[in-house]
Design a protein around this nucleic acid. Sequence first.
RNA 1: GCCCGAGUGGCGGAAUGGUAGACGCAGCGGACUCAAAAUCCGCCGAUGGCAACAUCAUGUCGGUUCGAGUCCGACCUCGGGCACCA
Length: 852
Amino acid sequence: MSRYDTKNIEPKWQAAWDEAQTFRAERDESKPKYYVLEMFPYPSGRIHIGHVRNYTMGDVIARYMRATGHNVLHPMGFDAFGMPAENAAMASGGHPKDWTYGNIETMVQQMKPLGFSLDWSRMFATCDPEYYGQQQSMFIDFMDKGLVYRRNAVVNWDPVDMTVLANEQVIDGKGWRSGAEVERRELTQWFFKISDFAEELLEAIDALDDWPAKVKLMQRNWIGKSRGLQFGFERADGGEAIEVYTTRPDTLMGASFVGISPDHPLAKELAETNPGAAAFRAEASKGGTTEEALEKAEKLGFDTGIRVRHPLEPNWELPVWIANFILMDYGTGAIFGCPAHDQRDLDFCRKYGLPVIDTFVAAYGGAPVGSEAFVPPKGETVRWLKPFGWDETATGDEAIDAAIARAEAEGWGRGVTKYRLRDWGLSRQRYWGCPIPVVHCADCGVVPERKENLPVRLPDDVTFDVPGNPLDRHPTWRDVPCPSCGKAAKRETDTMDTFVDSSWYFARFTAPRADTPTVMADADYWMNVDQYIGGIEHAILHLLYSRFFARAMHICGHLPAKSKEPFEALFTQGMVTHAAYSNAERLDPNNRKIYHFPDDVQDDGRGNYTLKETGERINVEPSTKMSKSKLNVVDPVAIIDQYGADTARWFVLSDSPPERDVEWTAAGAEAAFRHLSRVHRIASEIAEGGDTGADDDVLRKETHRAMRDVTLGIESFGFNAAIAKLYAFSNALSKAQASNAARREAAMTLALLMSPMTPHLAEDCWAMLGGEGLIADAPWPVADESLLVEDSVTLPIQINGKRRSEITVGKDVPTDEVEKLVLADDAVAKALAGGQPRKLIVVPGRIVNVVI
RNA sequence: GCCCGAGUGGCGGAAUGGUAGACGCAGCGGACUCAAAAUCCGCCGAUGGCAACAUCAUGUCGGUUCGAGUCCGACCUCGGGCACCA
């Protein structure tokens, strides 16, 4: 009998697939195409067990689709630009390019033993000049179509290192290296006009039938369409009116101040002459730029002394405050505050002694606002104290419409639709990214590079010994002639956000070596991505940017119209977690937890854990996100070495539903290996021949049920459920009392059904059992419906909703027959005690409920 | 702070509004063995009971329904995102 020797089996079948070029994707009009894509990895240095899970899911789909007659495209690449490469260069002195390509090489070598059905011939990295050069070419196309512009925007500025910081480099408002308090500073930056597409991106979500509802909801909320009133507050001093936007114009009679952003033009103007305003602006500029930082910061205000007139009551004057919580990017950068119906405004008014005016109360028994603002849903009917154009009782929505109607009728305001979605700032003041292909000329202004000069390559001779962007201080790269007039000019030194790189890689995979961004015939054949798989953390930005990019590419002729929504179906998978073990007896000198490697911890079998070396007690933190600092990272390379790739693949799919997190456990991996060994043993026993009985029909029914259940599991992304059925089928097969022919047929079916998950094992079993050719080329088994039909069905009987008995009836017994049988049942008769049921519910084929 | 999810035995989880706990892990018992490993067989939510069985049980509290893990409302805890991490 042959042994389940993964170190021999797995490389053997990988070589066989390579030899036959099984997974090479070529256009073939005779078959339906299927494009399956997993979000490509960042080349961090080693593959992670989370990658194994992500790519295994994609591989199951890819292999299943191949088996069901599709021409499958399943490519792989690397999202290779980004900060870690520069950080590594700063930390250990190498070059980001060497670091990145070295990591890619390592990761490819780690991925190949996993046996994914990838077309490696299409691989690229976004830092390849052949890729980013095409991206630069598209950037110029986007410029031509008016999809790109420059304006000022705020960045995190480290005043000590004199450099721009990413949000993750700002820790508690301070620069990660310098420790200096971060400032918000304006810089001229490049933007994509994604906001022009806000309505289209919102509406098109409705048609994304195979996207998770939660992702669609998050995107809708992110785009944030709102209807409100825009109007100007006339200034008492005759200065220029202050335009405000509000989604609650119905609360106008409760206004107690007008607030403007510290970045509002009026605030800037005041700061020039008013030292108090200047000081407040400086104070408000401290801290990071994230919305979270702004929201959580203490709400501060500065009374400008300016007064404005209330639009409905000209004698009513409101103070104008500069407030640090008002965003210049949203609406007009100015609001009116209504403390009675907005908690933030209420806190602000209580703090600065501004009045609180109720405009509506609950429909019945409403009390005035105290320390909590009254903010009912807009659809709820409330009683108005100060209506202006609607009834005393009305909903918020009705009042909002009426307020807008009155403002428009009287000519002092207009209803407008706004979106929360802001334009996409793509400038990064960093080296390791795609250079923005423009030149700044004193005479011609901003001039795009000539396409024949693309790619604008990153220079190799750079150093990272001082903070800041090396491109800025690289004279021979930076100083170039103007592409238009030829005079001395300077290259743009900003590079592109790495989200740009990942916003079109899926399209590039359809023609990865082309000397244009895409080739229409290839894009038209392979697009769209039929199944996209990745982490929920990309639910908003990456996916929204990609949806925008696909539209922009279509406008520039790089994608067909059907690809405006490039991802037909989306699946968001969970993380792989692992218990972390922290020392329960001591902390490190900084009062932080001390973690230990799983191998250094021992378990007494009763839930008590100790450190092997010292016997110290250990706290187990289950299901913890893997991280180097917690020493709970599982290395796929070690798992493959110990158990083989198929065990790793099987385990990451088996233990949890794919959209949820899965916890890696050593015992679970061991169990997976034992099961795969068992399947191999069963197949090899059957291959040796011999009958165990004559119940062929029983086994055949089991076999076809397995076909149905596993197929359903794969198609619905219920991989864990499919695997549970495969366990059950394996058990049935090993116990089957049947002829060798029937067992061989069942075992071959088992191999076929397992082949998407454990392809090497499946090939080996297939070969042992006399299967023809590669199982990777074999068609998917289809269940025979006639073998799935059950002759009789067991119905549970509930009495008042609690299960009390059951009856078994033929599958076609009519409902009135079932009722009679139920009433004759001992438990039912006893419960009825001679009386009649109040109600008798028969759900055919499912359940019976007797209501007494 | 705002937006979106998730909570079921000792553990991972299963369950088109219809028998809660499939399948796996751990544990317990047994077979095989000189012994062990491997393998095979059985038991396995809690409480009470010899048992039949009964009661409780899907984060908490309420609601809809003949029937709720599943639908609705509120809350608690954990996780993802918040526009320069990828």
